[in-house]
Design a protein around this nucleic acid. Sequence first.
DNA 1: TCATTTACTGAACTGTTGTTCATATTTTGT
DNA 2: ACAAAATATGAACAACAGTTCAGTAAATGA
Lengths: 257, 257
Amino acid sequence: MLAQCGRSFAARGIQLSNNRATSQSNGRVGRRYLARRLEILRAAGKQFRVSGFAETGMRDIAAAADLSPANLYNYFQGKHEILFFCQDVSLDRMIAALEKARRLRASAAEKLRLVIVSHLRCVLDEVEGSAAHLLTSALPPRLQRCLVVKRDRYEEGVRQLIAAGARTGEFVPCDPALAARAVLGALNWSVRWFNPDGALTAAEVAEGFADYLIRGLLAKPDSLRRHSPVRKLQSPIRKFLPQDVKRHAEAGRFSER
Amino acid sequence: MLAQCGRSFAARGIQLSNNRATSQSNGRVGRRYLARRLEILRAAGKQFRVSGFAETGMRDIAAAADLSPANLYNYFQGKHEILFFCQDVSLDRMIAALEKARRLRASAAEKLRLVIVSHLRCVLDEVEGSAAHLLTSALPPRLQRCLVVKRDRYEEGVRQLIAAGARTGEFVPCDPALAARAVLGALNWSVRWFNPDGALTAAEVAEGFADYLIRGLLAKPDSLRRHSPVRKLQSPIRKFLPQDVKRHAEAGRFSER
DNA sequence: TCATTTACTGAACTGTTGTTCATATTTTGT
DNA sequence: ACAAAATATGAACAACAGTTCAGTAAATGA
């Protein structure tokens, strides 16, 4: 009875079916548990982004999250699962922004601008942006497949957005897949050089990138409004949202072992 | 006398001053030694590109280069030095292309196109392209500093190319630093998705990227010639050039320990 | 208050990593 | 052909990774 008490809640949150996990997210202890999970994800995501996945040790993550290394295993099954959730959060945010842009009643250029700005915010935000979605390898096949599906869905959405613009004549005729990859490449690569203490804020980078990347697509570039009506980056520091907590609890079903 | 004979040539090539090293590159044994070094670099660069630096073990490199792991240390001081030379080769090629474009008597757009195409060739070429220059961390400070200087020189060159185009009015007014980073980001990220067995060849990707990325800069985009006079990618499979061999021999002076 | 669950930890375990060493095999110069 | 230099290797080493475990401290609920 003594040896089994440790790790019990984590085991419940991770290994059991999602209905049990979600029911546990109510109540005080469940809340604290999930909040701590997110703290860890935040710390790990930052470390992954600045140092890379393989270069970041569990002891580093533990130190950054102010935990003992062993305690990490009360919240996650292992390093791979931490990476998985980091990527999952990022991808879900991006997909949400994409779908918001889709529903927008606006030109293709304005939709694309919203996607670009949201993508950069998700990836560059110093506090919680977990650029870990940039990494793919070294995950168990099942988790990896799950992420690849999401990533492909996102990319496909961007492609369709560009293709739609080209169909209406707002954009120049082009290969939407290639253009989308150029755009997303420029965005994703930004984590490699962006410095939050540097000359440009994330919002300024986003504006500049959007101007340039959209201009290359527009059939009549001079019609581009330099200052688009889409609102700029606001509140670069954002806390984890309640729906994130919810989703984390539900996502346990993707774990294996 | 017996224990010292092993590793002696490698030691000469790596640790001693460069004049001694370069003098050794003549003669049969020296040639074979340097050729093998390049074979190793090629194999390692490919592995680094597909798996990442930390994820690639010395045993993997040895297997890919058809060597015993221990034998690697007859050619390089260690893993970090292999990474260093991979990055060094890539950067030198890119800088060479940049300076060739500079000397070109052509429009800024054509110069930029040459740089873009060369960059993608260097980075995507299945056979010898060592995209390892994408990685930076985990190198001894001295080696790292050397690479950062080269990379910054290259980036600065691209910036100046864009700035010059903007000055003459050929390009739209913009932040050259930001535009350069967007361009280079799109190019560098290509190694993450490009599949040599996929639908598009490296040359086709290069053309499409160049069209799009340059179009975003042009003040009068419709003046863009879709098929620029700059020759397309030729002979995607290229062997290591003699000057590469020479440079490798000279570069030993950057090593430490 | 007390018993039980939850949260946490130091130390140890296991596998892998980069690396070295003693030695064997091949190549070179004479 | 023979000694010396050069090239190559299997086996082992030390360090470190992710992970586990026995057990302690804290929180919870009655």
